[in-house]
Design a protein around this nucleic acid. Structure first.
Lengths: 130, 130
DNA sequence: CAGAATCCGACAAGATACTG
DNA sequence: CAGTATCTTGTCGGATTCTG
């Protein structure tokens, strides 16, 4: 990366990265993005479906993550304004699909660690909202 | 993940995770861990070597990352107390090596995006310390 | 050489309440 | 149904200084 007095970097849409890991982690880093992308890997999902699939996420965080994923071109948002009850679908774009091998590797590693070292725990919760 | 009123989670060494992505990202998440692991993928490196390989990182952050990676069992720290000038080697453990497929996937995706969308930029810097 | 200690700002993320 | 708005807390990471 360093050539004498000069360093080399990549710029993608105004953002500067210093190596390949950097780039990828900027797209999928953080606590939620991989999880959201994972649940979109097969088919489109609605906002409420994602909420139920990821009980720990708040509406606020889900909203923010989806918006960022959309801005990054990984996720497509489709609105069907039927009546007052809105219908919004989220799905992976083709660009988002290029991430699938990465997501699969990440999921596989976690899954295997969970099986070898993890203990299964059950959490009772009367309703989702404690 | 949700079964009626109950949620299921994994516990690994006291930490609770709700899905596989969650587990992996806890180990390699953040701005630096993937980069550090990446530079250790082939051979052991000394603290100063890593600093030079990752010019953007501060000593503080490198120190913190290495300590966490060691606590997580991904990296091994070897000290050779020769004289006042310490010599410390960092290398991947066998457990750390299990991450290599993940790291390779992450690196590959970033590399390809860099090639297709990125612009190469050169950054002049008289010394590393601006 | 290889860190540790301290301080601090920025942002990530949680809790709660409200809306078109 | 699919979000916003507001407030608060927590953590990440940068800058600087010091040490065995």
């Amino acid at each position: 990366m360093k050539i004498n007095d000069q360093e080399v970097a990549f710029e993608i849409e105004g953002k500067r990265y210093h190596c390949a890991m950097d780039i990828t982690m900027d797209y999928i880093g953080g606590k939620w993005k991989t999880v959201v992308l994972w649940y979109l890997r097969n088919d489109k999902k609605r906002f409420g479906e994602l909420r139920q699939l990821i009980p720990q996420i708040t509406e606020r965080m889900l909203s923010i993550q989806l918006k960022q994923l959309e801005e990054d071109g990984l996720v497509r948002r489709e609105v069907f304004a039927t009546k007052p009850p809105l219908k919004v679908d989220y799905s992976l774009t083709d660009f988002g699909r290029t991430l699938l091998p990465v997501l699969e590797a990440v999921a596989k590693w976690g899954r295997e660690l969970g099986h070898s070292k993890g203990e299964l725990v059950e959490i009772k919760s009367g309703l989702n909202k404690g």
